[in-house]
Every structure is written in structure tokens, then in C-alpha cells.
Design a protein around this nucleic acid. Structure first.
Length: 295
RNA sequence: GCAGAGGUAGCCAAGGUGGUCACGGCGGAGGUCUGAAAAACCCCAGAUGUCAGUUCGACUCUGACCCUCUGCA
């Protein structure tokens, strides 16, 4: 049995590529885009799916809801199973690499859920304070963290959450093992001989990436991106909702609130998209199982 | 043309009183990532308009020149 995973930089035409695969292999698509899982976010997240292909796992949560890579894997696994059983080829497509990582590999801490009360207590604490708390729990552990993790409040809170959990507090060493040697999806599905084709699409030069992104932003504006944001604000959503913590929405909200001019907002939107695609590649290229295709 | 203001990295921008070649933001390069990931975070590079003068020493003082902006015309 075979499944495809199509990921890569934004604006590389992943969905079109996946749709082509679907036709050749009798497949159905499973979205792996962390923004397209949200309802109401349509134009700016680019939910323009090709017709004639079935696609799952989009429009499944409200923009105010928290949705994690764990939640994603939880939903994706049974769906993949079901498609395979029906003789379909699952084609997972999207640029949210963390979601894919969680789905394809073993995550040691995946059974440690968010502790909302703890998160709330910690959310306004400054980094040194969070470091102190972490140090009180596990002084050795904090030394294992690299500079960027050590200064990242979100990550520090998660670490505290992990170390305070029952599972971890009974463990001798809170240091994690190295992941990403081999994929474990077939074990999770309990299927032998599962063939996974893991494909990453990327641009071969910066200029075409930039041109593509600018064109795409303009296209989305033409399609009514600003009205989409207006409607969301009128409906009571805010820039702090998980779903709206998204490139495009953040910038247009600033424009609509009068903090930025329209031109500034669009310029920033484009910058953020470019930076995002860069980060995607930086993250993904460490995965030895990913086979790159340049466009 | 006169008066006033000003020229600091690709852009914005701080630097009372001359002395480790200069704050910060945006953008750029590179990176981090085990339940927020289109998130959050780390890190690197880069500048005093031009020419002369004063001085032990000028981004900071003087002069000329070249530009830019505002007011008067």
C-alpha cells in the first residue's frame, strides 16, 4: 500500500501537484495546512481546491479554537486508515511541517496534553521568570536547551508543562531522544509494507518565489481579502484568536484598525510570506526522508 | 534668489556639552523547533553626503561644495 505526502514551501503549487497524483493513483487528499483547518478563513488561506478531487480535513474547527499538531494527527490517522481500507491512495498535502512530523514520527511527549490552568498562570510571566521556574523543576534540563528555546516563552511554558506532568515527574531523565530517523506511520496504522512517498516542493531561486508570492497576495486582495477580514471582525473575531494568528489576517487587521496604511499592510503581508517560506524550508530540510523537487 | 531645517546602513531613525567608529525598528543572511507552527524564538552582516580646516583626536566644531525639505518670493 502506498501513500503520498506532499509538502514544501508556500506557493509552490502543492495542491495542484497532489491533485495530479490523486488522479493517477485513485487518491483522495488530506489537508495538512494548519490554517485551512479553520472555518471562515477562506480567501487568505487559499482554500481554492481543484474540482474533481475529494479533499478532507479542512473547515473542521472554529477560528477561536485551539488546534494542535496532536489534534491533527488524531484526526488524520483514522482517516488514512479508512481510505486505505476503501482502496484509495491517501495523499496528504500541506506546508505545516510540524503537523506532518507529528503524524509521521513518534513524538515522545504526545501523551502530555496542555494544562490550561498552568498555561494561564504562566502566560504573562517574563522569560527570566519562566526560566527560573523551569530551573526549579529540572536544573539539568534547562541546560540542554539551546539559546533560542531558552528564550522562547511559548516553548518554555510547554517544557514546564511537560516536566510537571505525572508521566515526566516519574521519569529519571527528562532529556529527549533524537527523532526523525525513521518514520513510524506504518506502525501507528499497523500496516506492514506501507510505502510512503514524502515529497517536498521548493523554488530554485528567490526571485520566482517572490514574484509568485506578490502575485498571490494581489490575487487574494482582488478576491476580497479585506472584506473577508472585515466580516470576521464584525462577527466578533479578534487578532488573538488562534485561527487569525495567520499571515495576511494580522496585517489587514492592523490596516482596518487604522494602525497601518493599506500599503504598509500589504508590504508587511508579502514580507511575512517570504519569511515564512524561508522558515519552512529551514525546518523541512533537516528531514532525511523528504525528497525535494525544485520548481 | 533670500530665510529656516536637514543630510547617519536598502528604508525609518537615536545620538545635550568632540575621545571605546554609533541606540533601536523594518528589511536582508543564517538558524532553532517533541501538543500554539502561517506561531514563538535565536543569531549574523551593514552607516556618519563630498572636500578641506581646527584639534593629540570629529559623526559631533569651522568653511566650501553637492543634494533634500519648508517658508518667503
Amino acid at each position: 500500500m502506498k501513500i503520498f505526502v506532499v509538502t514544501g514551501q508556500t506557493a509552490t503549487g502543492k495542491t495542484a501537484y497532489a491533485a495530479k497524483l490523486a488522479k493517477h493513483y485513485n487518491g483522495e487528499l488530506l489537508n495538512a495546512d494548519s490554517r485551512q483547518v479553520y472555518k471562515e478563513l477562506n480567501i487568505i488561506t487559499g482554500k481554492d481546491f481543484p474540482s474533481g478531487v475529494k479533499i478532507h480535513l479542512y473547515d473542521i474547527v472554529d477560528p477561536v479554537e485551539y488546534f494542535s499538531s496532536f489534534d491533527y494527527a488524531q484526526k488524520a490517522l483514522p482517516l488514512i486508515e479508512q481510505l486505505l481500507k476503501r482502496g484509495k491512495t491517501p495523499i496528504i498535502v500541506g506546508g505545516s511541517y510540524l503537523y506532518l512530523k507529528h503524524l509521521l514520527y513518534d513524538i515522545e511527549t504526545e501523551n502530555i496534553p496542555p494544562d490550561w490552568k498552568l498555561r494561564k498562570d504562566l502566560e504573562n510571566k517574563a522569560v527570566p521568570e519562566l526560566q527560573r521556574i523551569l530551573n526549579d523543576i529540572a536544573p539539568r534540563f534547562i541546560n540542554e536547551l539551546n539559546n533560542s528555546e531558552r528564550n522562547n516563552p511559548q516553548r518554555l511554558i510547554r517544557k514546564i508543562e511537560i516536566l510537571k506532568s505525572d508521566i515526566m515527574s516519574s521519569r529519571r531523565s527528562p532529556v529527549f531522544h533524537d527523532l526523525r530517523s525513521s518514520m513510524t506511520l506504518s506502525e501507528k496504522l499497523n500496516i506492514k509494507n506501507l510505502q510512503i512517498e514524502f515529497i517536498g516542493l521548493r523554488f530554485n531561486d528567490k526571485e520566482s518565489l517572490k514574484a509568485k508570492i506578490i502575485a498571490r497576495v494581489e490575487d487574494r486582495l482582488k478576491k476580497g481579502a479585506i472584506d473577508e477580514v472585515k466580516k470576521l471582525l464584525v462577527a466578533g473575531y479578534t487578532e488573538n484568536d488562534p485561527g487569525l494568528k495567520t499571515i495576511g489576517y494580522q496585517q489587514l487587521i492592523k490596516y482596518l484598525k487604522g494602525e497601518w496604511t493599506k500599503e504598509q499592510a500589504i508590504e508587511q503581508w508579502i514580507y511575512k510570506e517570504l519569511q515564512y517560506s524561508k522558515r519552512q524550508y529551514t525546518f523541512m530540510k533537516k528531514d532525511p526522508n523528504l525528497v525535494w523537487k525544485t520548481i
